[in-house]
């Protein structure tokens, strides 16, 4: 009888067909509704910004790998997604070179100098946004209505609905929640339409690219914080205020597309929930008590820094370890 010896390789034995490239392609496709809506809402200038940021991000990655004699990773779409997210985080009136500078900063400093994809300690796109918002505070927060702006109301030409909400509270003159949900309002290119973002997020959920934990914990804890704030500050319950906070600004985009970035979010299931709660609480604090109307990007990059600590304390119990000892 013949005995066949098999060599068993070390684990993992069961490999998923999903590759980094495919995941990134799916994220890019999921961002498509948001991007297209942004271009429709803000005009061709938005398209120009998208092309410039994605192009410069990919080119920067290619050049870095070429000159540093590293394996070429420019085509794995991660740089493309980073560039796309930067574009979606820009106001449309920004001078064209600022998003390009942001792309270069994101890819070169935040991503490649720390060792490339998988090693970056914070989300490159958001780091770039914060870099730009600190450097060019004025340009990054002016939302002038341009000619292509198809918004329904004139009253929001100067400030985003979120900034108006912070300044005046929720009044009769506030932008209706329906418009904030649909997105034909002022804001950065990709953040205005909650509908388009949720469409894209549904795709990510369908292909199991992201799990429910981070977005749910994020939006849930944010909602609870706002509810507590409403009752504690004597404002009383106001559905309009709550939903304006939820659909206004970058909360939706951040919760579904940026907080869920694999590299900069915890891998432990419990850790993801803790991460989401930290995000929700920080975002609410920044928005309600901070100097500016928006706090999503700072909340996410601060929590990115907490990820190693969160992971350390939420390591799941290994099968067979721990448990009750027999008496």
């Amino acid at each position: 009888m013949e005995i066949t010896m098999y060599n068993v390789s070390s684990n993992p034995h069961d490999r998923d067909s999903m590759t980094t490239q495919r995941i990134m392609q799916l994220v890019a496709i999921a961002l498509l509704p948001t991007t297209l809506f942004g271009i429709w809402n803000f005009g061709l200038k938005a398209l120009l910004i998208v092309v410039l940021t994605t192009g410069s991000a990919v080119l920067c990655e290619w050049l870095y790998n070429f000159f540093m004699k590293k394996p070429q990773t420019a085509w794995d779409f991660s740089a493309f997604v980073t560039g796309l997210l930067i574009a979606l985080n820009m106001p449309v009136s920004i001078p064209w070179w600022m998003p390009v500078l942001g792309s270069i900063f994101a890819i070169l400093v935040v991503k490649q100098l720390y060792g490339g994809l998988g090693q970056n300690f914070m989300n490159p796109a958001l780091a770039a946004r914060c870099f730009l918002i600190i450097s060019f505070a004025g340009k990054m927060t002016t939302f002038t209505a341009n000619k292509a702006f198809k918004g329904v109301v004139d009253t929001v030409s100067g400030a985003t609905p979120l900034a108006a909400l912070k300044a005046n509270g929720y009044t009769d003159k506030s932008v209706s929640v329906l418009h904030m949900f649909l997105g034909d309002i002022q804001g950065t290119i990709g953040e205005t339409s909650a509908l388009a973002i949720i469409l894209g997020a549904a795709l990510l959920f369908f292909f199991k690219i992201i799990t429910w934990r981070i977005p749910t914990a994020y939006i849930g804890s944010f909602t609870i914080f706002i509810l507590i704030y409403m009752s504690a500050s004597g404002m009383g319950f106001s559905a309009g205020y709550l939903f304006s906070q939820l659909f206004g600004g970058g909360l939706m985009l951040g919760a579904f597309f940026m907080a869920t970035d694999y590299v900069t979010s915890p891998i432990t299931p419990m850790g993801q929930i803790v991460f989401g709660i930290c995000l929700g609480v920080l975002t609410a604090i920044f928005r309600l008590f901070g100097g500016s109307a928006e706090g999503v990007s700072y909340a996410i990059i601060i929590c990115n820094l907490l990820v190693p600590v969160i992971e350390r304390f939420t390591v799941p119990r290994a099968f067979g370890k721990g448990g009750r000892k027999k008496a």
Binding site: P95, M98, L101, F131, I134, S135, F136, A137, K139
Partner: peptide, 11 residues
């Protein structure tokens, strides 16, 4: 020239 203010700040 548009000054990149972050360079005179801590980061």
């Amino acid at each position: 020239y548009e000054p990149i203010t972050i360079f005179v700040l801590a980061p």
